[in-house]
Amino acid sequence: MPMKQAPINQETPYLLLDINKLDANIARMKAHLAPLNVTLRPHVKTNKSAQVADRFFNTADRPITVSTLHEADFFAQHGFTDILYGVAIAPNKFEHVRKLISEGIDLKLILDNVQTAQLLLDFSSLHHLPIKVLLEIDSDGHRSGLPPCDAEIEQIVGLLQGSLVTICGVMTHAGNSYNSRSLSEIEQYANQERDAVVSSAEMLRSLGVNVTIVSVGSTPTALFCKDLTGVTEVRAGVFAFFDLVMAGLGVCKPDDIALSVVTMVIGHQKEKGWVIVDAGWMALSRDRGTANQKVDQGYGIVCDINGRPIGDLIVSAANQEHGIISSRSGKHVDGLPVGTQLRILPNHACSTAAQYSGYYLLNLDESADTYWPRINGWQ
C-alpha cells in the first residue's frame, strides 16, 4: 500500500509518528533480547500513549515501567496491570499507591534508603496493605540508588522482614551509558549494570529474601548487552522512537528516528542567512542533549516534509515560538520560501513528545486512525 503522507493541512507545529519505524525499532529490541532469556518491561514514559504501548506486546502479559503515578493510573485504565513505578517512592504518594493496589494493580515500588522503608512500613501496617518493592542499586554513580551489596541493604531487609512490605528484588539504570564514547563502552556499562544487580540479588538471597525480579535497563545497554545471566527483565523506553542523542551514541541512525516535529517556514533573515519557522523551544523542548557529543545537532536536524535531511541544516537557536534554521557550515540558506513545511528530528524524544497532547500518524495503513492521544504531567 502507498505510504500515507503527513497531514498537510494540519496547523503547525505538530508531532508526527512514523508507525513503520516505530514497529521496526520495537522488533529490533525484541530480536536482540530474545536469545538472552529476559522479559522486556518497556518504559512508557517516552510515549505515554496506550496505542503506542499496545504495539510492544502480542501476548496477554504486558509488564510496563512508568515514571509517574499519573501514568500508572492511565495505563491501568487501559488494561496494563503489571506496573513498575521506576522512581523512588515519596511519602506523599502513599495514598495514591494504596488506591492503585486496591484496584487490583500489581504495582511494584522502588526503595533506596532506610528512612523511606520505615515510612512505607508504617503506612502498610496502618492500612494492612501488602506492598511490593524493589531495591534500587546504583550501578554507575549516575543518580540515585544504593551501592551494590551495601550494608544499608541488610538494614532494609531486617526492617521489612515478616511485614506486609515484600522485597521482590533489585533494579538499576545505567544512566552513564548516555555519556559513552563508543559501542564497546556501552557494552562495558551493560556488564557493569548486570554485575551490580546480580551481586546485590545474591546478597538478598543470602539474607533470606525470595528474589524474583532482577531488573536492568537503558536503551543503549539494552541493545548492546551480550550476557544477561542472572537478570530477569530489561527496561528501556526511548528505543521505540529513538532520537538524535541515541544516533550520536551510534545506537541508531537518524533514519531510524520515528518521531519528528512538523513546522512551517514563516520568514527569513536574509542578511544572516536564517530561515524562521514556527517551532521554537515550546515545540522542540530545551533539551540540548547532543551539545556534548561529537556532533552538536542544535535543537534538531532539519528535514523536508518526507523526512529527508536537507543538507547540513539544523535548528541552531530557538525562542519560545520561533525556531532559527541555519547551515552548520555558515552558508546562507536558500530555497525554503514562506509556507514550506519541514520536519525536525528531536534531540530527546521524551522531552519533545512531552510538549504535545498526541501524535499524528504516518504509515498506519491498517487503520483509519490519524491521531493517537497521550498524557502529560503528574496529576
Rank of each mutant, 00 (worst) to 15 (best):
P346F: 08
T232C: 01
K30V: 07
T219I: 00
G289T: 08
L183H: 10
T219Y: 03
I131F: 11
N25E: 11
L244D: 04
P220G: 00
G86L: 09
I257L: 09
V211G: 01
N179I: 15
S218H: 05
C225I: 02
F241Y: 15
I8N: 15
M264G: 09
G217A: 04
S200N: 10
P130G: 09
L100D: 10
A24H: 08
H173K: 14
T263A: 15
A258F: 07
E185P: 07
G158S: 12
L361N: 01
G311N: 10
G330C: 11
A318Y: 02
S182G: 09
S357T: 12
K48Y: 03
N9D: 14
G358T: 00
E321R: 14
F239L: 11
T172A: 11
A88R: 12
S184G: 14
L146G: 06
L146Y: 12
G145N: 02
V165I: 06
R41P: 08
I137K: 04
M203G: 01
L107N: 01
H348S: 12
A349V: 00
M203T: 05
Y85L: 11
A196S: 07
S316A: 10
S260F: 10
P7W: 09
S367R: 08
I314V: 14
A31G: 05
N92M: 12
R343S: 03
E233I: 09
L249G: 03
T81P: 08
E202C: 11
S184H: 15
D243T: 06
Q115D: 15
A201Y: 05
I186V: 13
S260K: 10
A117C: 04
H96K: 00
S180I: 06
G280L: 01
I156P: 04
G300Y: 01
P7M: 06
L33C: 07
L183V: 13
T12G: 12
Y85P: 09
V87D: 05
K132S: 06
A117S: 12
E202M: 14
H78V: 00
K21W: 05
V197N: 05
V114W: 04
D140T: 08
K226S: 13
H43M: 03
G237A: 06
R55S: 08
S351W: 09
K270H: 14
G230T: 05
L207E: 03
A196D: 02
K4A: 00
N292M: 06
G175Q: 04
G280P: 02
I137A: 04
L107Q: 02
V302H: 05
V209H: 04
Q269M: 09
V245A: 12
L126R: 10
L40F: 13
V52C: 10
I305C: 07
K132H: 14
L33V: 13
C149F: 04
A196G: 00
Q269L: 15
N37V: 09
G335H: 04
R181Q: 13
Q320M: 15
A117P: 00
V38A: 00
Q297T: 11
L119S: 00
